[in-house]
Computed example of a mutant assay.
Amino acid sequence: MKIEHILAGFIPETRGRDGLALAVLLARQAGARLTVGHVHPPAWPTPGPGKVDAEWRAYITAQAAQALQQARLALTGVRDVPIGYMLEADRGSGRGLVGLAGRIGADAVVIGSAPRGSRGRIALGSTADQLLHSCPVPVALAPRGYAEDHPPAIRRLAVAYRRDPASDDAVRPAAEIAAALGTPLHLITLVVSRGMRVKAAEQTLDRLRERAAADLGEAAHGHDVEVTTQVLEGGDVASALGGAGCEGALLVCASSTAGPLRRVFLGDTSMKIIRASACPVMMLPRNPPPRPAEPAGSTGGARRARSGEA
Protein backbone atom coordinates (compact mmCIF):
# COMPACT_ATOMS: atom_id res chain seq x y z
CA MET A 1 0.00 0.00 0.00
CA LYS A 2 1.57 3.27 -1.11
CA ILE A 3 1.45 6.51 0.86
CA GLU A 4 2.48 9.13 -1.68
CA HIS A 5 -0.37 11.64 -1.48
CA ILE A 6 -2.29 12.57 1.68
CA LEU A 7 -5.50 14.58 1.85
CA ALA A 8 -6.13 16.53 5.07
CA GLY A 9 -9.71 17.67 5.58
CA PHE A 10 -9.62 21.13 7.13
CA ILE A 11 -12.08 23.42 8.84
CA PRO A 12 -10.96 26.61 10.62
CA GLU A 13 -11.31 25.15 14.10
CA THR A 14 -9.04 23.35 16.57
CA ARG A 15 -9.99 19.96 15.15
CA GLY A 16 -8.91 21.13 11.71
CA ARG A 17 -5.45 21.96 13.06
CA ASP A 18 -5.30 18.58 14.84
CA GLY A 19 -5.84 16.83 11.50
CA LEU A 20 -3.22 19.01 9.82
CA ALA A 21 -0.64 18.14 12.48
CA LEU A 22 -1.12 14.40 11.94
CA ALA A 23 -1.20 14.77 8.15
CA VAL A 24 2.10 16.68 8.15
CA LEU A 25 3.77 13.99 10.31
CA LEU A 26 2.60 11.24 7.97
CA ALA A 27 3.54 13.13 4.81
CA ARG A 28 6.98 14.04 6.16
CA GLN A 29 7.85 10.48 7.17
CA ALA A 30 6.47 8.87 4.03
CA GLY A 31 8.00 11.48 1.72
CA ALA A 32 4.48 12.19 0.45
CA ARG A 33 2.85 15.34 -0.79
CA LEU A 34 -0.04 16.88 1.11
CA THR A 35 -3.26 18.40 -0.15
CA VAL A 36 -5.35 20.42 2.29
CA GLY A 37 -9.01 20.21 1.32
CA HIS A 38 -11.93 22.27 2.57
CA VAL A 39 -15.50 21.20 1.79
CA HIS A 40 -18.06 23.99 1.54
CA PRO A 41 -21.80 23.99 0.78
CA PRO A 42 -22.69 24.05 -2.90
CA ALA A 43 -24.34 27.00 -4.56
CA TRP A 44 -28.10 26.82 -4.99
CA PRO A 45 -28.95 24.63 -8.01
CA THR A 46 -31.50 27.14 -9.33
CA PRO A 47 -31.41 30.93 -9.28
CA GLY A 48 -33.29 32.56 -6.43
CA PRO A 49 -35.27 35.78 -6.46
CA GLY A 50 -33.32 38.95 -7.13
CA LYS A 51 -29.61 38.63 -6.40
CA VAL A 52 -29.95 36.26 -3.44
CA ASP A 53 -28.29 33.32 -5.23
CA ALA A 54 -25.35 35.48 -6.34
CA GLU A 55 -24.95 36.86 -2.84
CA TRP A 56 -24.98 33.35 -1.38
CA ARG A 57 -22.42 32.15 -3.89
CA ALA A 58 -20.16 35.09 -3.12
CA TYR A 59 -20.53 34.46 0.61
CA ILE A 60 -19.62 30.77 0.54
CA THR A 61 -16.74 31.48 -1.86
CA ALA A 62 -15.32 34.08 0.52
CA GLN A 63 -15.76 31.79 3.54
CA ALA A 64 -14.06 28.89 1.76
CA ALA A 65 -11.14 31.06 0.68
CA GLN A 66 -10.77 32.33 4.23
CA ALA A 67 -10.70 28.76 5.56
CA LEU A 68 -7.86 27.81 3.22
CA GLN A 69 -6.00 30.97 4.16
CA GLN A 70 -6.16 29.89 7.81
CA ALA A 71 -4.76 26.51 6.80
CA ARG A 72 -1.89 28.23 5.01
CA LEU A 73 -1.14 30.28 8.10
CA ALA A 74 -1.18 27.15 10.28
CA LEU A 75 1.36 25.51 7.95
CA THR A 76 3.61 28.53 7.46
CA GLY A 77 6.58 26.85 9.14
CA VAL A 78 6.34 23.61 7.14
CA ARG A 79 9.05 23.75 4.46
CA ASP A 80 9.87 20.10 3.89
CA VAL A 81 6.48 18.85 2.64
CA PRO A 82 4.95 19.81 -0.74
CA ILE A 83 1.52 21.27 0.05
CA GLY A 84 -1.43 22.14 -2.19
CA TYR A 85 -4.85 23.54 -1.33
CA MET A 86 -8.21 22.65 -2.85
CA LEU A 87 -11.90 23.37 -2.39
CA GLU A 88 -14.77 20.92 -2.84
CA ALA A 89 -18.49 21.67 -2.90
CA ASP A 90 -20.76 19.13 -1.23
CA ARG A 91 -23.62 19.10 1.27
CA GLY A 92 -21.78 16.51 3.34
CA SER A 93 -18.20 17.22 4.43
CA GLY A 94 -17.30 13.54 4.61
CA ARG A 95 -18.80 12.78 1.21
CA GLY A 96 -17.00 15.81 -0.19
CA LEU A 97 -13.66 14.53 1.11
CA VAL A 98 -14.33 11.09 -0.39
CA GLY A 99 -15.03 12.71 -3.75
CA LEU A 100 -11.98 14.96 -3.52
CA ALA A 101 -9.75 12.04 -2.52
CA GLY A 102 -10.84 10.17 -5.62
CA ARG A 103 -10.41 13.19 -7.87
CA ILE A 104 -6.83 13.93 -6.78
CA GLY A 105 -5.75 10.31 -6.28
CA ALA A 106 -5.07 10.57 -2.54
CA ASP A 107 -3.75 7.48 -0.77
CA ALA A 108 -5.16 8.43 2.66
CA VAL A 109 -7.52 10.98 4.23
CA VAL A 110 -6.78 12.61 7.60
CA ILE A 111 -9.18 14.57 9.84
CA GLY A 112 -9.41 15.62 13.47
CA SER A 113 -11.78 14.52 16.20
CA ALA A 114 -15.30 15.86 16.54
CA PRO A 115 -15.39 18.72 19.09
CA ARG A 116 -17.37 16.93 21.78
CA GLY A 117 -14.58 14.45 22.54
CA SER A 118 -12.34 14.56 25.60
CA ARG A 119 -8.85 15.92 25.18
CA GLY A 120 -6.50 13.21 23.95
CA ARG A 121 -9.38 11.06 22.67
CA ILE A 122 -11.28 10.69 19.40
CA ALA A 123 -14.98 11.44 19.03
CA LEU A 124 -16.85 10.56 15.84
CA GLY A 125 -18.96 13.24 14.19
CA SER A 126 -20.85 13.34 10.90
CA THR A 127 -17.71 13.90 8.80
CA ALA A 128 -15.95 10.89 10.31
CA ASP A 129 -19.11 8.80 10.05
CA GLN A 130 -19.39 9.45 6.32
CA LEU A 131 -15.69 8.75 5.77
CA LEU A 132 -15.68 5.61 7.92
CA HIS A 133 -18.52 4.08 5.96
CA SER A 134 -17.57 4.89 2.40
CA CYS A 135 -13.95 5.95 1.84
CA PRO A 136 -11.96 3.72 -0.55
CA VAL A 137 -8.59 4.68 1.02
CA PRO A 138 -7.36 4.60 4.64
CA VAL A 139 -8.85 7.19 7.00
CA ALA A 140 -6.72 8.54 9.87
CA LEU A 141 -8.23 10.35 12.86
CA ALA A 142 -6.25 12.65 15.16
CA PRO A 143 -7.21 12.90 18.85
CA ARG A 144 -8.52 16.18 20.21
CA GLY A 145 -5.62 18.50 21.09
CA TYR A 146 -3.12 16.64 18.89
CA ALA A 147 -1.84 19.84 17.28
CA GLU A 148 -0.78 21.20 20.67
CA ASP A 149 0.80 18.01 21.99
CA HIS A 150 2.05 15.56 19.40
CA PRO A 151 5.30 13.58 19.03
CA PRO A 152 7.96 14.76 16.60
CA ALA A 153 7.39 11.63 14.52
CA ILE A 154 5.38 8.42 14.33
CA ARG A 155 7.63 5.88 16.06
CA ARG A 156 5.53 2.73 15.86
CA LEU A 157 2.64 1.39 13.82
CA ALA A 158 0.41 -0.72 16.05
CA VAL A 159 -2.19 -3.04 14.50
CA ALA A 160 -5.23 -4.23 16.43
CA TYR A 161 -5.21 -7.89 15.39
CA ARG A 162 -7.43 -10.87 15.89
CA ARG A 163 -7.48 -14.05 13.87
CA ASP A 164 -10.08 -13.38 11.20
CA PRO A 165 -10.02 -12.67 7.45
CA ALA A 166 -10.27 -8.89 7.89
CA SER A 167 -7.30 -8.66 10.25
CA ASP A 168 -5.26 -11.13 8.21
CA ASP A 169 -5.86 -9.04 5.10
CA ALA A 170 -4.92 -5.84 6.99
CA VAL A 171 -1.50 -6.97 8.24
CA ARG A 172 0.17 -6.85 4.82
CA PRO A 173 -0.87 -3.27 3.93
CA ALA A 174 -0.10 -2.21 7.52
CA ALA A 175 3.41 -3.62 7.12
CA GLU A 176 3.76 -1.69 3.85
CA ILE A 177 2.67 1.52 5.59
CA ALA A 178 5.15 0.84 8.41
CA ALA A 179 7.90 0.41 5.81
CA ALA A 180 6.89 3.69 4.13
CA LEU A 181 7.01 5.49 7.47
CA GLY A 182 10.24 3.80 8.56
CA THR A 183 8.69 2.38 11.74
CA PRO A 184 8.44 -1.09 13.28
CA LEU A 185 5.15 -2.98 13.18
CA HIS A 186 3.55 -3.87 16.52
CA LEU A 187 0.73 -6.44 16.46
CA ILE A 188 -1.60 -6.34 19.46
CA THR A 189 -4.53 -8.53 20.46
CA LEU A 190 -7.03 -7.49 23.12
CA VAL A 191 -8.26 -10.13 25.56
CA VAL A 192 -11.41 -8.81 27.25
CA SER A 193 -12.64 -10.57 30.40
CA ARG A 194 -15.93 -8.75 31.02
CA GLY A 195 -18.92 -11.07 30.94
CA MET A 196 -16.97 -14.23 31.88
CA ARG A 197 -18.26 -16.35 34.74
CA VAL A 198 -15.96 -16.11 37.74
CA LYS A 199 -15.24 -19.84 38.09
CA ALA A 200 -14.43 -20.31 34.43
CA ALA A 201 -12.78 -16.96 33.86
CA GLU A 202 -9.18 -17.95 34.63
CA GLN A 203 -9.26 -21.09 32.54
CA THR A 204 -10.90 -19.22 29.69
CA LEU A 205 -8.37 -16.40 29.95
CA ASP A 206 -5.50 -18.91 29.86
CA ARG A 207 -6.87 -20.39 26.63
CA LEU A 208 -7.42 -16.94 25.14
CA ARG A 209 -3.89 -15.86 26.05
CA GLU A 210 -2.37 -18.96 24.47
CA ARG A 211 -4.48 -18.65 21.33
CA ALA A 212 -3.77 -14.92 21.01
CA ALA A 213 -0.03 -15.44 21.41
CA ALA A 214 -0.02 -18.24 18.82
CA ASP A 215 -2.07 -16.18 16.34
CA LEU A 216 0.18 -13.16 16.79
CA GLY A 217 3.30 -15.27 16.31
CA GLU A 218 1.95 -16.66 13.06
CA ALA A 219 0.86 -13.23 11.78
CA ALA A 220 4.30 -11.75 12.55
CA HIS A 221 6.15 -13.87 9.99
CA GLY A 222 7.03 -12.90 6.43
CA HIS A 223 7.26 -9.09 6.60
CA ASP A 224 10.10 -6.80 5.59
CA VAL A 225 9.88 -4.67 8.74
CA GLU A 226 10.66 -5.32 12.39
CA VAL A 227 7.59 -6.94 13.99
CA THR A 228 6.75 -7.23 17.69
CA THR A 229 3.65 -8.67 19.34
CA GLN A 230 1.73 -8.08 22.55
CA VAL A 231 -1.37 -9.54 24.23
CA LEU A 232 -3.28 -6.88 26.19
CA GLU A 233 -5.84 -7.76 28.84
CA GLY A 234 -8.61 -5.85 30.56
CA GLY A 235 -12.21 -5.89 31.67
CA ASP A 236 -13.20 -4.01 28.50
CA VAL A 237 -11.64 -2.65 25.32
CA ALA A 238 -10.66 0.67 26.92
CA SER A 239 -8.84 -0.88 29.89
CA ALA A 240 -7.07 -3.46 27.70
CA LEU A 241 -5.98 -0.84 25.20
CA GLY A 242 -4.62 1.30 28.03
CA GLY A 243 -1.62 -1.03 28.29
CA ALA A 244 -0.55 -0.49 24.70
CA GLY A 245 1.73 2.48 25.32
CA CYS A 246 0.45 4.97 22.76
CA GLU A 247 3.25 7.54 22.91
CA GLY A 248 4.37 8.16 19.33
CA ALA A 249 2.14 5.39 17.97
CA LEU A 250 -0.37 5.20 15.14
CA LEU A 251 -3.01 2.51 15.73
CA VAL A 252 -4.32 0.67 12.66
CA CYS A 253 -7.65 -1.17 12.51
CA ALA A 254 -9.21 -3.35 9.85
CA SER A 255 -12.66 -2.65 8.46
CA SER A 256 -15.58 -4.86 9.39
CA THR A 257 -16.14 -7.89 7.16
CA ALA A 258 -19.78 -6.82 6.93
CA GLY A 259 -18.86 -3.77 4.86
CA PRO A 260 -18.52 -3.40 1.09
CA LEU A 261 -15.28 -4.27 -0.65
CA ARG A 262 -12.72 -1.49 -1.25
CA ARG A 263 -14.38 0.73 1.32
CA VAL A 264 -13.72 1.62 4.94
CA PHE A 265 -16.55 0.24 7.07
CA LEU A 266 -16.67 0.71 10.84
CA GLY A 267 -17.64 -2.30 12.95
CA ASP A 268 -18.58 -2.37 16.63
CA THR A 269 -15.13 -3.42 17.91
CA SER A 270 -13.33 -0.85 15.77
CA MET A 271 -15.65 1.86 17.07
CA LYS A 272 -14.79 0.91 20.66
CA ILE A 273 -11.07 0.94 19.84
CA ILE A 274 -11.28 4.36 18.20
CA ARG A 275 -13.10 5.86 21.18
CA ALA A 276 -10.69 4.31 23.68
CA SER A 277 -7.44 5.09 21.88
CA ALA A 278 -5.11 7.79 23.21
CA CYS A 279 -3.21 7.95 19.91
CA PRO A 280 -4.23 8.55 16.29
CA VAL A 281 -6.15 5.75 14.61
CA MET A 282 -6.10 4.71 10.94
CA MET A 283 -8.89 2.59 9.50
CA LEU A 284 -8.00 0.50 6.44
CA PRO A 285 -10.53 -0.21 3.68
CA ARG A 286 -11.75 -3.76 3.21
CA ASN A 287 -10.05 -5.30 0.21
CA PRO A 288 -11.17 -8.37 -1.71
CA PRO A 289 -9.33 -11.60 -0.91
CA PRO A 290 -6.59 -12.57 -3.37
CA ARG A 291 -7.85 -14.66 -6.26
CA PRO A 292 -6.41 -18.20 -6.31
CA ALA A 293 -3.86 -18.80 -9.04
CA GLU A 294 -5.25 -20.71 -11.97
CA PRO A 295 -3.50 -23.83 -13.27
CA ALA A 296 -1.15 -23.40 -16.20
CA GLY A 297 -3.03 -23.40 -19.47
CA SER A 298 -6.33 -22.58 -17.83
CA THR A 299 -8.79 -20.66 -20.00
CA GLY A 300 -10.73 -19.31 -17.02
CA GLY A 301 -9.30 -15.82 -17.48
CA ALA A 302 -10.32 -15.73 -21.11
CA ARG A 303 -13.81 -16.95 -20.24
CA ARG A 304 -14.18 -14.22 -17.61
CA ALA A 305 -12.96 -11.60 -20.07
CA ARG A 306 -15.52 -12.70 -22.68
CA SER A 307 -18.34 -12.82 -20.13
CA GLY A 308 -17.51 -9.34 -18.82
CA GLU A 309 -16.49 -10.44 -15.28
CA ALA A 310 -13.81 -8.44 -13.43
Score class of each variant (00 low, 15 high):
Ala30Met: 10
Thr229Leu: 02
Leu7Gln: 05
Leu7Thr: 11
Val237Gly: 00
Ala62Gln: 15
Ile6Met: 10
Gly105Phe: 03
Ile177Gln: 12
Pro42Leu: 02
Arg275Leu: 08
Leu205Phe: 04
Ile83Phe: 06
Glu202Lys: 11
His5Ala: 03
Arg306Glu: 13
Arg15Thr: 14
Pro136Leu: 10
Ala147Ile: 05
Pro115Cys: 09
Thr269Ala: 04
Leu73Ile: 13
Tyr59Arg: 03
Ile188Val: 15
Gly37Arg: 00
Gly195Ile: 02
Leu132Cys: 01
Arg262Pro: 00
Gly105Trp: 09
Arg79Asn: 13
Pro42Trp: 03
Val52Ser: 14
Gly50Val: 03
Cys246Lys: 00
Leu73Trp: 09
Asp268Ser: 14
Phe265Pro: 02
Gly50Ser: 07
Arg155Asn: 06
Gly242Asp: 15
Ala258Met: 03
Glu148Pro: 03
Thr228Gly: 11
Ala293Glu: 15
Lys2Ser: 12
Pro280Trp: 08
Cys135Lys: 02
His186Gln: 09
Ala258Gly: 15
Ile104Gly: 00
Pro138Thr: 10
Ala54Tyr: 08
Leu34Pro: 07
Leu25Glu: 14
Arg17Glu: 05
Thr76His: 15
Val109Gln: 13
Ala71Asn: 08
Arg15Tyr: 10
His221Tyr: 06
Gly16Leu: 01
Ala142Phe: 09
Ala108Ser: 12
Ala178Tyr: 08
Gln29Ser: 11
Gln203Lys: 13
His150Ala: 12
Arg119His: 04
Val225Asp: 00
Gly102Trp: 08
Ala27Asn: 10
Met1Asn: 09
Gly117Glu: 13
Ala244Ile: 10
Ile273Gly: 00
Gly182Glu: 13
Glu218Ile: 08
Asp53His: 14
Thr228Asp: 09
Pro260Trp: 08
Asp53Gln: 11
Gly300Pro: 01
Asp215Pro: 02
Thr183Arg: 11
Gly301Met: 04
Gly31Thr: 11
Arg197Trp: 05
Ala153Leu: 12
Ala101Lys: 01
Pro184Tyr: 02
Ile3Glu: 02
Gly248Tyr: 09
Lys2Ile: 07
Ile177Trp: 15
Leu26Phe: 04
Ser270Cys: 09
Pro280Leu: 06
Gly31Leu: 08
Gly112Glu: 03
Arg209Trp: 10
Thr189Pro: 04
Ile273Pro: 01
Ala21Gln: 12
Ile154Gln: 01
Gly112Val: 10
Leu131Ala: 00
Asp18Tyr: 08
Cys253Ala: 00
Val227Cys: 10
Arg211Asp: 15
Val192Cys: 08
Ile6Arg: 06
Glu88Ile: 04
Met271Cys: 13
Glu210Tyr: 01
Ala27Lys: 05
Gln66Tyr: 07
Ser277Gln: 12
Glu210Met: 07
Tyr161Gln: 02
Gly125Glu: 10
Arg291Asn: 01
Arg28Cys: 04
Met86Trp: 11
Pro295Ala: 09
Ala30Pro: 13
Arg103Cys: 00
Met1Tyr: 06
Glu4Leu: 07
Ala43Lys: 12
Ala140Leu: 15
Pro45Asn: 09
Val171Trp: 03
Gly267Phe: 06
Pro152Gln: 12
Ile154Asn: 00
Val231Pro: 04
Asp164Leu: 00
Leu132Asn: 05
Arg306Val: 14
Ile104Val: 08
Gly125Arg: 11
Ala108Val: 06
Asp164Lys: 00
Glu88Tyr: 11
Gly84Lys: 10
Val52Ile: 15
Ser307Ala: 13
Ala220Ser: 15
Leu205Ile: 14
Ala180Gly: 10
Ile3Phe: 04
Glu247Cys: 05
Ala62Gly: 12
Leu216His: 01
